[in-house]
Design a protein around this nucleic acid. Structure first.
Lengths: 225, 225
DNA sequence: CATTTCACATACTGATGGTATGTGAAAGGT
DNA sequence: ACCTTTCACATACCATCAGTATGTGAAATG
């Protein structure tokens, strides 16, 4: 690698940084390429040399954001030993990470519209979505979930968490809202869990009570303003 | 009233029809106003006389689509006598209606990106979302759901159904996919239902840990905004 | 029947995404 | 060391789009 590749990578990152900031703040449609290249300190020539167009820049930004989110999900999940706890921890981490306004706007709001739902879905399946599917498969394997195709369930849960994240990313939402969203998600997940009584014979004799992790009290989410 | 209002309404509908067709097929971003007015057989002058701009046309189209969907939801729900059946029937009808590609693309994919999530949410809260909240409140009231703020749960379920609908709206999905999505949704809803064994009569703390909450249905469904 | 209103058409503008071409410095061969 | 090629990027340009300003003719109004 010479000084050439170095410069190349520097402008690449400058473009991604500028684009992410502007896309997150104003939305894809309201951001023009002139604004992006100006914020990055380069010209349109540089942008079109490195990307195939505006949508490609957005896709690259989205991938980077999704990677960050997936990283936090994995980190949170692999700190928990038991499979069910991993699912819950992963979901909670996803919710937290996606609530970051930049992530919500780029990944959840504009993503499907700009890239098309199919492309967007595919990218999700390669980052956070994959871990969700794997966690569900493991839970089915060890009898904590009733045997079922995990694909549809993963989509359902993913959609649920995405919507909650977009809500929580909205300015004006409070910590109480965050707690209420987490509690609702906990209740849904717990409802899916095979009751210990109904479980024929699991891998372990249920050492801990169904982890009710509703932190704080689920309060009225009405947000005054 | 006069021939004037008549003509006015005719071009209004022509614009909405043309815009809905094009937006559904190509997406908001890929449709230009020239294409819309050409398909409607009018000129840009007519469009800007009746609407405030491209986004306003889209909003009007979305409202019409959302009304159609909500209509089907209500029709399906009110044909069922018991509250729980109403919820399930309503959800299934929403899934069916939103799977129509035109509805999915306009309402679910482009809607949040074009109008902004908050505006989009508000519109949903006025059509389908309202009925979901009401159904959940009724179920909490009659003890089939554990007392909880229904706002977050409604958002969660709405997001889940939206994602499933977008999936099923994709070309290439089969009837088996449709059935699998419905089954997954059924399982989640059923998991939320209070077990008859745990429901002797009145409202009890349920199997959840204490400290949850004990209030009734007090909950503001829509975040004011 | 004169006047006003209004639904719409035409003409125009600034800005945007995208392309074609130019340029100068780094890489590579001899 | 020198010439050539490559490449990362800049400049100039174009088609198109959303939006605006103005014109127009028929319906409403008195």
């Amino acid at each position: 690698m010479g000084v050439r590749d170095d410069q190349r990578e520097r402008t690449h990152r400058a473009l991604l940084d500028a684009a992410e900031r502007l896309f997150a703040r104003d939305g894809y449609g309201a951001v023009g390429l002139p604004a992006v290249v100006a914020a990055a300190g380069v010209t349109k020539g540089a942008l079109y040399h490195q990307f195939d167009g505006k949508a490609a820049v957005f896709a690259a930004v989205l991938d980077r954001v999704a990677d960050r989110v997936a990283g936090r999900v994995v980190a949170a999940a692999e700190a928990v030993p038991d499979p069910w706890g991993r699912l819950v921890a992963g979901c909670r981490a996803f919710l937290d990470a996606s609530t970051e306004p930049s992530a919500a706007r780029i990944m959840l709001v504009d993503g499907p519209a700009v890239l098309g739902w199919a492309d967007w879905r595919e990218r999700d399946a390669r980052s956070s979505g994959r871990h969700l599917v794997e966690a569900l498969e493991e839970l089915v394997g060890c009898g904590e979930l009733t045997p079922q195709p995990v694909g549809p369930l993963a989509r359902l849960l993913s959609g649920a968490m995405n919507e909650l994240a977009m809500w929580l990313a909205e300015p004006g939402t409070t910590d109480a809202d965050r707690a209420a969203a987490g509690a609702a998600l906990d209740r849904v997940l717990d409802g899916l869990r095979v009751r210990p009584a109904d479980r024929p014979d699991a891998v372990r004799p249920a050492p801990l009570r169904p982890g009710e992790q509703s932190k704080g009290t689920a309060d009225d989410p009405a947000a005054p303003r």
